[in-house]
Design a protein around this nucleic acid. Structure first.
Lengths: 183, 183
DNA sequence: TAGGATACGGAGACCCCCGCCGTTTAGCAA
DNA sequence: TTGCTAAACGGCGGGGGTCTCCGTATCCTA
């Protein structure tokens, strides 16, 4: 990769992150190019699709979440480990503007890129779920949980305190609608 | 309202419904105008904002859901009544293209129009929840449940069978993550 | 039927996405 | 250092979309 290309890539990524934080997942690519001081063609060369840009912008975040999941593998409190991770994912999805929509969209994408965020999270979370399977309702999959979280994050996007609200709803879904019963 | 205005209003509503069913909540207004054979100005006159158009298109559906809720008031099986209604709302939100997004957006709208769909549903569902309160986890509100449903519907929009998937996730959230326990 | 109120239509300004291609420039090799 | 070539750049042009505005056509009433 040529030096100037690297520079532009980095600049674009930084600008895009800022712009997406402000305007959400459908921030204007043109605008990003303008702010970064490059032509619109350059944006499209580095990131052929909007999805590619989102993936790049959120890559670190997603990586962190995946690492978070791996760290919790092998713990004695398997259910607690899973719940902690779900909480972390929820907080990120609800807090980081555009992430939820990005996750939702790559569920949409027909031609799944192997390393799209959802796939990564699914792979990272699957062992956690398997490990906690005895303490979960039968038939629950990581995919289900991620879908639920994505949905919750989308629905709370405009709430004054998205993270709190999203986690509240997640708790509701985890606990279930019924009053708590003692075993 | 002048006769021609009424005609155009009706045509636009019909075309919009079809177009939204195909292209979702951000169908092109221009396109709708074209199909309906009117100028784009006419669309904007009848429906100043996209939100207004969505509200009009989904009005009947929402009305039906509200009626559905009212019908279930006073039943002995209060919990069952609530769950049935939640299922109905979920099915509609997941099936009718654009509805979920519309619901989500008017949660967003700062200046809540009194009769936006979410408000209506909230008012209609509130008595059902109150009525079933003894069988619910404390602190659960209609607003929470509608947010959850909206989110689920958004997240399952692209699934091959949205209604089934959405209801599955709703069941998951109602049951909770834990294995079923006997009292 | 004549006139005013009402609704219509589309032009204009602005923005965005996307593909393309002539031009510049980085980096290697002589 | 100086060429040279391939890679990267920038921005133009076409196609859409949204939103505003105003001259014009249409309805309805008196």
């Amino acid at each position: 990769m040529r030096a100037d290309a690297q520079r532009n890539y980095a600049r674009l990524l930084a600008v895009a992150e800022a712009e997406i934080a402000v305007n959400g997942a459908d921030a204007s690519l043109e605008q990003i190019a303008r702010i970064a001081g490059v032509g619109s063609g350059t944006v499209r060369r580095h990131f052929p699709t909007r999805h590619a840009l989102l993936a790049a912008v959120f890559r670190d975040r997603v990586e962190t979440l995946c690492a978070h999941a791996r760290d919790r593998l092998g713990r004695p409190d398997t259910r607690g480990a899973l719940l902690e991770w779900l909480g972390a994912v929820t907080t990120s999805a609800a807090t980081i503007r555009g992430l939820a929509m990005a996750l939702n969209r790559d569920r949409t994408a027909d031609a799944e890129h192997e390393h799209c965020a959802t796939t990564q999270l699914t792979e990272a979370g699957e062992p956690l779920v398997r490990q906690a399977a005895d303490d979960l309702a039968p038939g629950v999959t990581v995919t289900d949980l991620l879908a639920l979280i994505t949905g919750i994050a989308l629905a709370t996007e405009t709430h004054p305190d998205p993270a709190a609200e999203a986690n509240r709803l997640l708790d509701l879904a985890i606990t279930g609608l019924s009053p708590i019963r003692r075993l």
